[in-house]
């Protein structure tokens, strides 16, 4: 049995009928075809599915789509400029080689943005703490931390 759901995704009003058991990540990927949000572990450990709900980073594989009713969801597709110019945090990941296979990257970027929203100039220690819920199996994290630091600087307008 489906129930009606309405919410905002990347600034657009979305209405759909969903089964209550639909996970937010499945709604985003399968219903909305926004496949930048990844499913890694599917057990709320790896953070590849991280999106923002009302501006706060959450693991969308561990949340029902109906829990996001009437709320504003932002996915990785919602952060670049309309003309495709990368968000400064995305650009920093590219510039600083903050990824190898790239699977964890959308979640890393969304978590990094959540951190910078509350701490515009985070220390490396704070960055590591804030990325505690995001696993990367390629990089060893060094360049991810460097990228987040650089992304935060770029976002506050300095280079």
């Amino acid at each position: 049995m489906t129930i009606p759901l309405s919410l905002t995704v990347n600034g657009q009003a979305v209405r759909a009928d969903v089964e209550p058991r639909t996970l937010l990540v499945d709604f985003i990927r399968d219903h909305l075809r926004l496949t930048g949000t990844h499913i890694g572990c599917d057990t709320a450990q790896c953070g590849a599915c991280t999106v923002h709900v009302d501006g706060q980073a959450v693991k969308s594989c561990n949340m029902l789509a109906v829990q996001a009713a009437d709320r504003a969801v932002t996915t990785i597709e919602g952060i670049a400029a309309a003309d495709g110019t990368l968000h400064p945090m995305q650009a920093a990941f590219r510039d600083h080689h903050g990824l190898q296979c790239g699977y964890c990257t959308p979640g890393m970027v969304m978590s990094a943005l959540d951190l910078v929203a509350s701490d515009p100039a985070p220390s490396r220690e704070r960055i590591r703490e804030a990325l505690d819920g995001n696993l990367c199996r390629c990089t060893g994290y060094q360049n991810i931390v460097v990228a987040v630091e650089a992304g935060a600087r770029a976002m506050s307008g300095e280079r």
Partner: peptide, 8 residues
């Protein structure tokens, strides 16, 4: 938990 878990 972690940052995302603490938000929920």
């Amino acid at each position: 938990g972690d940052r995302m878990v603490r938000h929920m």
